[in-house]
Design a protein around this nucleic acid. Sequence first.
RNA 1: GGACAGGUGGCUGAGCGGUCAAAAGCAGCAGACUGUAAAUCUGCCGGCCCAUGCGGUCUACGGAGGUUCGAAUCCUCCCCUGUCCA
Length: 377
Amino acid sequence: MEFEVIARDPTTRARAGLLRTAHGTIETPVFMPVGTAGTVKGMAQDELERLGVQILLGNTYHLYLRPGHEVVRALGGLHRFMSWPHPILTDSGGFQVMSLKELGRVTEDGFAFRSHLDGSSHFFSPEKALEIQLALGADIIMCLDECVEYPASHETTHRAMKLTSRWARRCQNAFFAPRPPTPDPQPLLFGIVQGGIDRALRRESAEEITEIGFEGYAIGGLAVGEPKAEMYEVAESTAQLLPADRPRYLMGVGTPEDLVECVARGIDMFDCVMPTRNARNACAFTSQGRVVVRNARYARDETPLDPKCSCSTCRRYSKGYLRHLFVAREMLAGILTTHHNLHFYLDTMRRIRQAIVAGQFSKLLASAGGGAGETPF
RNA sequence: GGACAGGUGGCUGAGCGGUCAAAAGCAGCAGACUGUAAAUCUGCCGGCCCAUGCGGUCUACGGAGGUUCGAAUCCUCCCCUGUCCA
């Protein structure tokens, strides 16, 4: 059994667990920093280790285009290639079906697209996405899905959801089909539930995906523009439709408060570009709320980003200095702020997990939510 | 002393009779960012007023006059800057 729930919060759906992978056991709930192109932008791997990162995300689409999955395979797989001997999850390219939709076209057989790098033509079938991920050698791999934006018509959402189910079946078949032996241990294959904010479509999708059967289940297609209340509701109702003994992964979410709120709704795994991208854009997440470090008000501020933070950025540098680095467009600005944001996210997750294990989660949830104005997140 | 070239909003720099409170870039200020085409993008950027608008008003294109219905744009004088020649 790869996933084990070790504690449940008595008043919410929050739970703490262990997820065993070929490169180590992950304590859930977990936040997975996004390392799209084989790097978490601005962070060296040893720094990620010191921050306590348990598992990284890699991206099928980006690594396939550059340097190429065969290159990564030739260099020993993604773990060895990027010197990350810990768990890795690769996204299938399903998100790019949405984010790069103007460069491609969805057909029954897959996603035909042109490279955003050089315009060359390519095709991702479910089988191809699986093959690439196997070549990369990730610990957790995702089925190819079709992620649609919000708002979308019922027809579009329905069509994408049904296609995602058919692709999931094909990924499953390809996964269990005989294939040449590789040095990599067998990864865990996760299915993805789609259906937008339509409860009936979500239910149908969840039934179809769980019927196929996967090691873990992802909820995709959220945090794409829908109202926050909708996102929370759909995450909660969909999570309830998924097997209790398998990890639930809410893809692409979210803000620090989203993490707390969605753990309370039964989610075990998260990934999001927000801590890293926002850091590069001068936005820090702190216990006092968001801090736009670039703002003029911090020019003479000698206090750290977050007075309650123990990260190496906050221990050493003032907002005044960080603001200067941003204004001067120094690369250290993004590096130091990314370090802080990741620390904040990982620390938030650790506190969430400890609270669940200690039976104190509802207290943490209350302090994170309700408060007006500057909440802890 | 002479010959050219030029003086435009914080800076660089277009405009060369009206549609100009004045292009564009930079700087400045603010905002956005949720499975990364993102160290990106968006908005504001003379003052005041109603703060609804392709609104009203005042001050502005070195200075002072002038021509014109109308001038950053044309004329006169002055001041200043750069290059070259003495």
